[in-house]
Design a protein around this nucleic acid. Sequence first.
DNA 1: AAGATAATAGACAGAGTGTCCAGAAACAGT
DNA 2: ACTGTTTCTGGACACTCTGTCTATTATCTT
Lengths: 201, 201
Amino acid sequence: MTVVEDRRSRRTRGALRDALVSLVLERGYAAVTVEDIVAAADVGRATFYTHFKDKEALYDHVVSSVLLELKERLAEVLAPEDAGFTGEPVAEVFRHATQQPDPYRMILRGEGDGRGLRAFEDAWSASAYEIFSARVKANAVRPRVDLQVLARAWVGEQMAVLLWWLDAPEPRPATDQVVETLVELSRHGRFWATGFDSDGH
Amino acid sequence: MTVVEDRRSRRTRGALRDALVSLVLERGYAAVTVEDIVAAADVGRATFYTHFKDKEALYDHVVSSVLLELKERLAEVLAPEDAGFTGEPVAEVFRHATQQPDPYRMILRGEGDGRGLRAFEDAWSASAYEIFSARVKANAVRPRVDLQVLARAWVGEQMAVLLWWLDAPEPRPATDQVVETLVELSRHGRFWATGFDSDGH
DNA sequence: AAGATAATAGACAGAGTGTCCAGAAACAGT
DNA sequence: ACTGTTTCTGGACACTCTGTCTATTATCTT
């Protein structure tokens, strides 16, 4: 059992990873062939198949790498007894996304027939649900709406804004500011109390 | 210029449409071949190519049909001077989705590398933005947050809940109830005011 | 330096694509 | 019911990409 991967493997896998992501962002997942990938990565075609079963396997590898890394980072942030809803987890996701925007873009755009998107959404929704119900218990409040729906809605919102933000032309608005907006929305709804809410219906 | 399409064309196109959607939901877009589609639709392979350039063209056709139909229905609903935010447009989308859940599922899952999803999201965000800014003007309020972000967030939320709802096992919760929840969230944020909001700092 | 592991080119069969054709079938209008 | 038009069809074609294999070379690790 190798503790550290052979340098050649490491380099090859990295090159394939990067090639996939940038090609997908350029042409769309379906339009990218294994031949394209190995050409861009400057790797023999046979080599590709010693590392990955097919294009899908490479894609899945990229997605789960990102997801795993995010999970580890979130674990650190959530460790110190989350006393209040400071939006810290959201901010951490945004920070992580800034550090590798391209894989995030690929995933959030739904490339790969939305498989990455769904994986991301499911993982995120699950932890959102946990955070919510822990909070409900701790504060002894009765939630207004089903927590499952709440989690889905919340995550859907985050992901939409995250993608919008990643695709925005540089310089992007500051992370903290966007996150602040999201938290604000989450607390008080979308509008001012001034007349905006009190419509006829 | 034919006023009404030839019956044969109509039938063939319909069969191809349905075949694509159900196969995609079953196996995923990438795994579906033109040969699969024509087999399921019980149509000669050569016939396929007299109607559509390729699988992608058929997919785009399905997406734009749905989008066009939705647009027309929304136009009717929005016609009578929208005086207040009654959530009526949202309800209309949900109703439309109930009538043809499968194409909606296909699109919202991100099949087709998210192209349908993005088309849907863009269209919806654009009209959401218009509604919002019209309302800002009419009520002479200053919005708390950037309307662009607001629109994205709102739409992301709707889409996530819509997909969750469509994938929920029957009998699904009533449309009106889910929509009511969404509007409620949009007005007052995610939690009760009882202590939930008032966390540290 | 030596043994282990990885990368490579080239060859292979097979699946699916998109185009073309010529004949058969179904259609719309009179 | 007839007729000219349109659509449907199977079969054939060249082509691209796939995934597997093999023998050889290059590069790593210790």
